[in-house]
Design a protein around this nucleic acid. Sequence first.
DNA 1: ATGAAAGCGCTAACAC
DNA 2: GTGTTAGCGCTTTCAT
Lengths: 338, 338
Amino acid sequence: MPETPSRSKATRNDVAALAGVSTAVVSYVVNNGPKRVAEETAIRVRQAIEMLDYRPNAVARSLKTGSIKTLGLVIPDGKNPYFMAVSTAVEAAARQRGYVVLSASSNLDPDVESAHLNVFEARGVDGVLLSSCVQGAALTGQAIPGLPMVFLDRSTAAGINTVGVESRAGAFDAVQHLIEHGRQRIGLIIGEDEYVTGDRDRISGWRDALGAAGLPEGPVEFGDFSLSGGYSAGVRMFARSDRPDGLFVSSDQQSIGVLRAAWEAGMRIPADVALVSFDGIAESAFTCPALTTVQQPIGQLAEAAVDLVLRTAQQSSEIAHLRFSGDLAVRESCGCVN
Amino acid sequence: MPETPSRSKATRNDVAALAGVSTAVVSYVVNNGPKRVAEETAIRVRQAIEMLDYRPNAVARSLKTGSIKTLGLVIPDGKNPYFMAVSTAVEAAARQRGYVVLSASSNLDPDVESAHLNVFEARGVDGVLLSSCVQGAALTGQAIPGLPMVFLDRSTAAGINTVGVESRAGAFDAVQHLIEHGRQRIGLIIGEDEYVTGDRDRISGWRDALGAAGLPEGPVEFGDFSLSGGYSAGVRMFARSDRPDGLFVSSDQQSIGVLRAAWEAGMRIPADVALVSFDGIAESAFTCPALTTVQQPIGQLAEAAVDLVLRTAQQSSEIAHLRFSGDLAVRESCGCVN
DNA sequence: ATGAAAGCGCTAACAC
DNA sequence: GTGTTAGCGCTTTCAT
């Protein structure tokens, strides 16, 4: 009959004592090395571990080894399904490599973002994945010396690791698809900051596709990357006198809001205005109509990002800019299906 | 002109040396105690900290103090906006109290769930919040001796801390609202048993409201708590010969799928069938029609849960079962607005 | 094959 | 007011 496990946590000392060996030996069997242990002894140790319900303390271990097998992740908006998907994918990739992830949302506040980064650093994370809410020069300012870091979903920037999608190409394809449907006045709904600052790839894609087809630029409305941001931009867009017959929206989350705005305005999608968006979140397949959208390869992005931080953590020399391309998932909002 | 900060991380020893004081004093100024330090000395120390860009190592600290100011959270489905909202709220509540949260999704796999729990335990988290994917007796099995833990969104269970919503009351109100709209055949779309215990209560609420009004139980279809789960349940529901004229759906995420199924079936909501659901996720206000739903007080839940684990971590005696009530957010899917 | 012991970076008595 | 020092739980070199 097993003893009642002691109330307080057993330490490696207790195990050593019970098994009648030194603490070093316990270490060897727990870690399967670096020294070999006689099978007999190992068995005694394992029994002691079992009896005491001993669980190694990873924190203490990390103090010695320097790695706590933890990655930090900060996303700009914990309520956007796209970033949830990123989180999930990053967690999975990390888990597969024996890491766990500490994650946090900055809610679009740069100060919160850097506070998170500092907390992670203090916790001794092995590296950080950052989908920042700041841009351009400020971005580099978020870096913490000595902390391996990769930026998610940002344009190439000097001196820092980045992984992201080929936004320009994706946007180009999306708009081209609209053009193939014969749409002539193709508008744009996009995040304000994206327009104003750095990452203008989605805009270039839209503009270039139009240019390539000899079409003029349609109306543009801004709204943040949220349901309500898309909704209000949509309301404004559909109230315009130069209402478009095609629309490229910079994210699915916004598109859901746009769909709602269209519904309220009595605008039929895709009959009156065909719509294509970006991201490929799960909900894009369940809207009415379902969204034709540029599907981001989130799994690939996450794996690449995790591999990259981990590599950086080992030999911090390399700086990489990884880009993956998204495919257009053709559904109903573009007019392909009725 | 400031020195170039050293490449390798500065430790408390370096600071002490630079400031010409002992490590204890550095500790005192960093932690603002427990001893007082002469203002002059403190200034020297702070300058040294600044110069060396010294950042205290929270891990080493926790080895001494026993607390690493970290909470663990495991949710069953990282892709459900409801759980994302829970995550976000828990993070916020924890942050406010000086804690960060390590979070993970079990993706409905009990083994993954307990693996996460073990990893958290080994990381020395101060407590865990668990929205489990297992039920009943198995639930208690997930507990780790000595690890403060509170279950989220679970029915009262013996011996364990829980915080959740008044599901039965919420469901009752929802169904009653449908009845007030004159609906007579009120169906139910709900999760398969294994997912959420809240189910039981949601079912009772539906049944009781019907009973109270002297109405018979309408058709029931099962689907998991996802977009596609709701979608397929909806497809089946609308294909039935005893199609309902009112529908209570156990979560907003499912409702979005149901809306899609209705749309495909040419069923008008609320004209043909009025719908009320549960959760109050952000997207429920942007569907077409917008969802009338029982709004969960997620912020309250999160705060209560965090407070409860923290309290448990201090004196592990108390066992509490906290329940909060949700309010019906009346929108369009019930027929109140046209 | 095993053990002794020196820390990892930090805290907090306990001296002075 | 400040310094010394003994660990927290673990890993690992260097003996034996």
